[in-house]
Design a protein around this nucleic acid. Sequence first.
DNA 1: TTGTACGCGTTATCAC
DNA 2: GTGATAACGCGTACAA
Lengths: 345, 345
Amino acid sequence: MAEKKRATIADVAKLAGVSITTVSRVMNKNYPVKEETRQKVEKAIEELEFKPNLLARGLIHNKTQTIGILTPSIENLFFSQVVKGIDSIIKNKGYTTFLCNTEGDPQQEKLMIGNMKDRSVDGIIAINPRTNNIKSGYYELISKQIPLVIINGYNKGIRCNYVLNDGEVGTLEALRYLYDEGHRDIAFLRGLHSYSYDVKENIYKEFCKDNKIMFSEDDVLVIKDGNGLEAVEQSKATVENMLKKKDKITAIFACNDWMAVGALNAAKALKISVPDRFSIIGFDNTIISQITEPSLTTVDQNMTGLGQTAGKRICEIIKEKDKENRKIIIETKLIIRDSVNVISE
Amino acid sequence: MAEKKRATIADVAKLAGVSITTVSRVMNKNYPVKEETRQKVEKAIEELEFKPNLLARGLIHNKTQTIGILTPSIENLFFSQVVKGIDSIIKNKGYTTFLCNTEGDPQQEKLMIGNMKDRSVDGIIAINPRTNNIKSGYYELISKQIPLVIINGYNKGIRCNYVLNDGEVGTLEALRYLYDEGHRDIAFLRGLHSYSYDVKENIYKEFCKDNKIMFSEDDVLVIKDGNGLEAVEQSKATVENMLKKKDKITAIFACNDWMAVGALNAAKALKISVPDRFSIIGFDNTIISQITEPSLTTVDQNMTGLGQTAGKRICEIIKEKDKENRKIIIETKLIIRDSVNVISE
DNA sequence: TTGTACGCGTTATCAC
DNA sequence: GTGATAACGCGTACAA
């Protein structure tokens, strides 16, 4: 019940019989202090359990030892993994993370970034931000005000720091794998708004043309929320609908593992055997892909690496080691499991 | 490149030709201001895109409109769901959330709470904190310094605000279900350190005694990290090991869905059919339980409700509407799916 | 209705 | 080596 008030630097100074300046010096070790006084001060600090008020510090330096992370969904294991990667790097550098959920809403995204700026975070990492906010120049503007790294978002001509998985190569490799196994009627499943979906769709269309695969616009299936848990339900409905109409489709490429799960559930609901009659390939290689039955063939995008790289990068930018913007690409890797079958003509 | 500095209240005052006090009054609407001056000030605010510095404000009030959330893992869909529930409530009240990951480490837990206090958060919600930190009185102490709500943690005699799922009833219902289906040899799978595991284990042991079920200590399987993704691997290894040794076990109760998945994988690895020869029951009702094959029978603990309730509670405490500590229990519900089979004698 | 001046807890600058 | 004192940006008694 004592409800002790938190000690301030002044309390410490009084107890130690020195000035607050000296206390500050002992704490920050930035100026020489006589060993004897140092001891006195340290004792007082310990006794009062003094911890400096970060707000007051922040007010002076405009630094708070905090990094803000923006994610469209914490329900997607992809993001958890990326965040874990970021954390692992910046924790060691004395930063704390400040995680914000946007639900993939572009307005929320801006609002949250405002919140972060208000709280004087030292830097921001935005994971899979909305394409429009990049294109419109919004992020470029922010980037000039505060250190910023964008993970899995990009737009030509927009000057920002990017860390991206190699969605082009990953998608291509997956499609080629399907092709080599004999598939010629491949559908494509994506969410509405994200750079990474756009990249994949472009590759898909190019691939079809290059390989003289016939495809119509309704082979591109689009669900509203790609990142959250809703993706499963929405994908199921969409794919089920497609499977009923177009029975010549033999395979589907889904832009993430949740969507792939939805596709799998659709097939199951229609008693279409996977992979015997319908092949599915996912993206991300979250643990989900190992759990389904059959387990999902998918593209590993090294989520931890993505996070770690972004973590390192933001620290560099904060320390101004590197004022240039950079675009760092992380390699992907096809993980072959059981959801794709050979087609014999 | 203009790198405009953020406007301060003084800039606004100057531009509007008034004192900073007046600007402050316009912003906070706490004192009457002549309509005409108000207009001038509002115009200036808009023009300079002025937003008050929350650090400065926080320094005065010791309030930052921020709520800290502590979670042992963001990889577990259970926590994502709870956090979403919290968010949905407190966003509307003008708070921002500050999510911290402890990896279930008791030291990290304290460290993170320190971080939050340093940043003058207005309140803290701790999800599934380590039992020892509650028992030791640590959380009771924190609770005196700062508004605190504990989700799924509890200890007799420790005065805190709690929001709990009814683990007793949920576990009992699940065990009774297994019993009614004919199971008499039931193993129990838990993680090492958490109140919710302790509750369930107690119920399990009581249940066995009450129903004259023989059980030995090695029917209680314990893995190290219950909350993270590692739980899947660890559970698989542990359960596989058990299944090899004790073939009379016909069912297992797992303390969360990830562990249940691990148990499922173990059975698959040994080509033991689920549920024909081995039944599994999980806990949480995360989406995972719908995805596995067979889908998991599990206990829904209303994760969103848990989060929402905690969100409301923390707001009440902050506003000091209610100085009494309370313990709020959220109901659970058995969800019957396909991972449990009837045993015929 | 408006303005002055001080305080919040720290760090940095300049004296001593 | 050490200590006053002015910042940082805002809110608020108090005075006018």
